[in-house]
Design a binder for these strands. Structure first.
Lengths: 350, 350
DNA sequence: TATGCCATAAAAAACGTTTTTATTAAATTT
DNA sequence: AAATTTAATAAAAACGTTTTTTATGGCATA
């Protein structure tokens, strides 16, 4: 609608206001003192011509894009989903909230979990300087991407656990501690035959951490660790079902189960319903995640606040981007809370 | 790890290969003929030095960023959610899939639905040329943003309906037609007292379209339109419940209900359960959306394929960005399918 | 033998900023 | 009163590309 379609540049402002372009830049960004009178004139023109600096030109010299990238498993993948439900938006909300406030743009890109399919794209984005930093959520064991990124001193924050802990910034709940306390809770209720369902293969650090927490709690209580009380599941409901089946088939079945994910807990419950195993009557159940599922099925569970994790992750990344001095890797731990529901009962069966 | 931390530029390549920077650019991008021998030498150096052009510098001259922005209601908002479930990821998946293939980056930004809170940010992003185009999903009546964007000839594709149809590109299901056929389906089953629940205020075009489709179907069948058979609900389950309550309180209650959203259909069912109204026994129910809820509650519903909508939207935007000639606004219609379930019954009550 | 053409490549301009350096006049210090 | 600092501004350099223009030989054509 305006005279021309060419967008207005700093040159136009300078000409119209009768000053040099540097003065315009100084005034606009407040980076150098400019006489009030001149400043007023410049801002009048800026407003009148509706000037907005070109981000590419600016980025070329400042070496900033104000874009940050979130790299995750697919939003609809099993990692984020359970019962058709996706918690991806929780994570997104936390990240978006702080990024928005700090005036960063959020770019998202996803991976086929464990297949490192798109990884090269992330590397490319970083190498062509298309983003200032990246939040990575890669719940698999592969840390080569992360290594490559931090090797180039590229600002990275890991969402979740990773083998490179203490070398690279991260935000997560304390999986070891949660598992430890989950097992402890069962012990306190008097259980001694406590089983554990891993939410994935032990190569995943999350799983290893949880198993270890579980194991240490038993050890502390002087209870023998039994191989047959550990079931390596996956992120799907079925694995909880299968775990229950396996445990119940033992000559000496456990009286309590520490489930790796709520969705597995649901599997356990389903098994119970189908086979007349009462929960918590015959087997007490405690889980991780505290999703809507836990609420719905009355499963005692420990919160994994993805909203908070996203928020803290974004904050940390922002710190990385604005701080000049490198002060080593930070590992933020988001506190978890045990939400007691019916599934854990109050007394063990004997 | 390399000698210096400064990233390698086209100058480095030129020097190392003993040619001018323009020649490197020509060879790299294939934009002008370069002798094979020279080309080989250049690519060897590019590979050896691991060169990746700087996107800001490139964007400055090409006026492209390869970023496109998705602007939607909040991913966890009622618009995308029902029963704690979010379909946002479906939309995201469709968009991401094609954008990724075309080598665009996806930037996301959201709005508090109807409060046009962040709108200025979108405008700013566009004016500073931080993105090449935008996919907008704004299910409210406010079209000022869209007007502003297209006024500046900024490439925009609307996801969903909008008052500016035919002036601006869009992708949506045919709400009028769906409602028409939904009502018709009820008519074919012999119903004559058919009520309608709007999923929102009639200022929203989606709602107006649906109401109109419903009304026209009745009219075509020679059935009188009754004001009291229309309930203006909102995006929440409760509004379906309230609608059912209102309808059932009439001296002559409807025998069929066309629900605006699955979640409202659930509200109707809940009402029925609590008040002993059998569905489809006493009232037949048909809905829009075909979400997991419809499946779960056995509600006959018409598909709204957000995955497909996202895909087509992204494709259309890409076309806009690559075509030189403007060929008017395109309005893509994604086909819908009626999924028959128990809720609509086969015979009307009389 | 000049003339034009072609293939290749170099040089230069442009993109729109920020940042560094230079200039000028006024104010302050010595 | 001269020297120095300060405030305000202008000029120029830099950022790293793409794109346009110019140059250079060789080769065919007139």
């Amino acid at each position: 609608m305006n005279k021309s379609d060419r967008s207005v540049t700093i040159k136009d402002i300078a000409r119209e206001a009768g000053v040099s372009i540097s003065t315009v830049s100084f005034a606009f960004n407040g980076t150098a003192p400019v006489a009030q009178e001149t400043k007023d004139r410049i801002f009048e023109v800026i407003k009148r011509l509706n000037y907005q600096p070109n981000s590419a030109a600016r980025g070329l010299v400042t070496r900033k894009t104000n874009n940050i990238c979130l790299f995750t498993p697919h939003p609809a993948s099993d990692f984020f989903s359970f019962g058709g439900n996706s918690v991806f938006s929780h994570l997104l909300q936390g990240i978006g909230e702080v990024l928005d406030q700090k005036d960063y743009n959020l770019l998202i890109s996803w991976d086929n979990i464990g297949h490192k399919a798109k990884t090269p794209k992330l590397i490319k984005l970083m190498r062509e300087r298309a983003m200032d930093g990246v939040l990575i959520c890669l719940p698999n064991q592969d840390s080569s991407v992360i290594e490559e990124l931090s090797e180039h001193h590229f600002p990275v924050v890991i969402i979740g656990s990773n083998g490179l802990k203490n070398q690279v910034n991260s935000v997560d709940v304390d999986n070891y501690d949660i598992a430890f306390r989950n097992a402890q809770h069962m012990l306190q209720l008097g259980h001694t035959r406590i089983a554990f369902i891993s939410p994935g293969p032990l190569e995943f650090l999350v799983c290893e951490d949880r198993l270890e927490g579980y194991r240490d709690a038993l050890e502390e209580a002087g209870i023998r660790f039994r191989e047959e009380y550990v079931f390596i599941g996956d992120e799907k409901e079925r694995s909880g079902y299968n775990a229950a089946a396996a445990f119940m088939a033992l000559k000496e079945p456990p009286t309590a189960i520490v489930s790796g994910r709520d969705v597995q807990g649901v599997g356990v419950i389903e098994y119970g319903r189908e086979h007349g195993v009462s929960i918590p009557g015959d087997v007490a159940l405690i889980s991780f995640e505290n999703s809507e599922l836990a609420e719905k099925y009355g499963i005692t569970s420990v919160t994994t606040d993805l909203y908070e994790i996203g928020k803290e992750g974004a904050k940390l990344l922002h710190k990385l981007l604005t701080r000049k001095k490198d002060r080593g890797a930070q590992n933020i731990v988001i506190p978890s809370e045990l939400i007691i529901r019916a599934s854990c009962g109050t007394k063990p069966t004997t």
